[in-house]
Design a protein around this nucleic acid. Structure first.
Lengths: 126, 126
DNA sequence: GTGGAGTTGTAAATGTTTTGTAAAAACCGG
DNA sequence: CCGGTTTTTACAAAACATTTACAACTCCAC
């Protein structure tokens, strides 16, 4: 389909030319060097990566990683995202996107800046 | 009826050769590029697109998107419409029509640019 | 047609909310 | 305790929303 697929994702792990996350052994590597992540940092990354390409709302992240309920307001998430980004170095912006007013999204690595141009209907009900 | 129907609309999304709006995932794309819309911008667009072809009065838009009641007068709507149009680029005029004294209308894309032009005034108050 | 009241378009200023960041405090297992 | 981790705090910065002020436009009465 003319799109260079450079990232693979599965229940067992995620992999692209720079980043690798092993959901089974619970660690991540950047350019073949193991990342030293704390538990929360890893869980946050894993949750984002498992849902690569999808926006995960703050409350969902706080729920899944911290066990917090909807109404809790805290900057904890942001602080952890910051530390994660720091460890992801120069790729951080490419990988972890901020969705204003909603949450965050992990964007899988792409070689080519996708420009499909083709008009292809999305599934529209029955 | 000799009119090339090129746009499809459903509870799940709207699509034509240029514009696509996914009501489920809440985003829109223009020529296959995702539009970066703020929440209000998206909600405004979605409401218009969901009722494509129909005139939506100002007070209805202000009610549905902003929660404002009838009597509130504000330019907020106009400013948002402007920003939406800007992001819709060269198609903006084609898509978002101003109905003087009443509101706005999203006009679904049509291959044959049949000049509608005519506006049948609806009953204007008693 | 013309004028004028009312409506919409627009840019810029202002206000509000959300996120980023550094630093300090609290926590927690060993 | 001690060192690493996590959370909180406090403020800065960014994103977004609204208001303001005025220009441009539309429509209708004349």
């Amino acid at each position: 389909m003319g799109l260079l697929q450079t990232a693979s994702n599965s229940p067992y792990g995620y992999q692209d030319p720079h980043l690798e996350v092993d959901f089974v052994r619970k660690y991540a590597s950047l350019d073949s060097h193991r990342l030293v992540l704390t538990r929360k940092e890893y869980e946050l990354l894993a949750l984002l990566v498992e849902n690569a390409g999808e926006i995960i709302p703050r409350h969902m992240l706080l729920m899944r990683v911290w066990g917090y309920s909807q109404e809790i307001r805290t900057r904890t998430l942001d602080v952890h995202v910051r530390r994660l980004r720091k460890k992801l170095g120069s790729y951080s912006d490419q990988y972890i996107e901020t969705i204003f007013g909603i949450g965050y999204r992990f964007q899988p690595f792409r070689m080519t800046q996708r420009f499909s141009g083709v008009f292809q209907p999305i599934a529209m009900g029955a």
